[in-house]
Simulated scan of single mutants.
Amino acid sequence: MAEMKSLAATVRSGTGKGAARSVRREGRIPAVLYGGGEAPTPISLDKKVTTQLIFAGHFLTTIFELDIDGKKERAIPRDYQLDVVRDFPIHVDFLRLKPGSFLKVNVPVHFINQDQAPGIKKGGALNIVYHTVEMKVPADNIPEAVTADLAGMDFNDSLHISQIPLPEGCKPTNPDKNFTVASLNPPAGGGEEAAPAAAAAPAKGKK
């Protein structure tokens, strides 16, 4: 399940570009909390704390308990914007998480047991088709990642989504019910299997 973190926020007055610039001049980041059948709530966040959270990774799959002037709201970031020149956050969108609700998230795929894949040992290349998989997941059970086991894979083998254990209640949105997540390609020239044949061939000019 995705990690939950606490994050302090403050309700901000006013919306639009002018109000957002005013918030940034105060050293804070404008944000909005929406969804859950309630009206959007304009909020602001501490710039230093939010920047650290974003660049630490997994920000968009982390559940936050927002403390908005003493009121607690469970939410997940749906998007953030970075300054195009200086690459720091300038806005964040949060989605309210209500019990029993579902949402779509991109879940990272972690590959394990490369050392137990014969094709990789022989010099093959892993072709990753999906580094992340979009899934519809319960709001109270958002996975941090799914694990793809490469053990036993040889040249020209494929790993399909049906071979990857998925958390309960999580379903891929891909219309292909058994799409390929990764495949193992032989190296150019045939790899180790071609080596014995090459060694057995006589060199040019020799009898």
Rank of each mutant, 00 (worst) to 15 (best):
E3I: 14
K5I: 05
S6W: 10
A9S: 04
A9P: 09
R12H: 07
S13Y: 09
S13M: 11
S13C: 03
T15D: 04
G16P: 04
K17F: 08
A19V: 06
A20V: 11
R21Y: 12
V23Q: 02
R24V: 08
R24Q: 08
R25I: 06
E26T: 04
G27Q: 05
G27R: 06
R28I: 02
I29P: 03
P30Y: 08
A31L: 11
V32E: 00
V32D: 01
L33Q: 06
G36L: 00
G37M: 04
E38N: 12
A39E: 12
P42A: 10
P42E: 07
I43C: 12
I43W: 08
S44H: 02
K48I: 15
V49N: 07
T50A: 14
T51W: 06
T51N: 05
L53D: 13
L53E: 15
I54Y: 09
I54V: 07
I54Q: 03
F55H: 15
G57T: 03
F59R: 07
L60V: 04
T61H: 14
T61L: 06
F64P: 00
I68S: 06
I68G: 03
G70N: 10
K71H: 11
K72F: 10
K72Y: 03
K72H: 12
R74C: 01
A75H: 12
I76D: 02
P77V: 05
Y80P: 04
Q81Y: 10
Q81G: 02
D83F: 07
R86E: 13
P89L: 09
I90M: 14
H91D: 11
V92I: 15
D93Y: 12
F94T: 02
F94C: 01
L97C: 11
L97D: 01
K98V: 15
V109C: 03
F111Y: 15
N113W: 09
Q114F: 14
D115G: 12
Q116I: 00
Q116A: 14
P118T: 11
P118E: 08
I120T: 04
K121M: 13
G123R: 08
G123I: 09
G124Q: 01
A125H: 13
A125Y: 09
I128A: 05
H131L: 10
T132V: 13
M135N: 04
K136S: 13
K136H: 12
K136Q: 14
P138A: 05
D140P: 02
D140S: 12
N141M: 02
E144N: 05
A145Q: 13
A145S: 13
A145C: 06
T147V: 15
T147H: 04
T147M: 11
T147F: 08
A148W: 05
F155Y: 15
D157Y: 12
H160D: 00
S162N: 11
S162Y: 00
I164C: 05
L166G: 04
P167K: 08
E168N: 08
G169H: 07
K171S: 07
T173F: 03
T173R: 00
D176T: 11
N178W: 07
N178M: 04
F179V: 07
F179D: 02
T180S: 07
T180M: 15
V181E: 02
A182H: 01
P186Q: 09
P187H: 03
P187G: 03
G189C: 06
G189T: 08
E192Y: 02
E193H: 12
E193Y: 06
E193I: 10
P196Q: 04
P196W: 02
A197C: 00
A198H: 10
A198P: 00
A199E: 15
A200S: 13
A201D: 07
P202E: 13
P202L: 14
K204S: 13
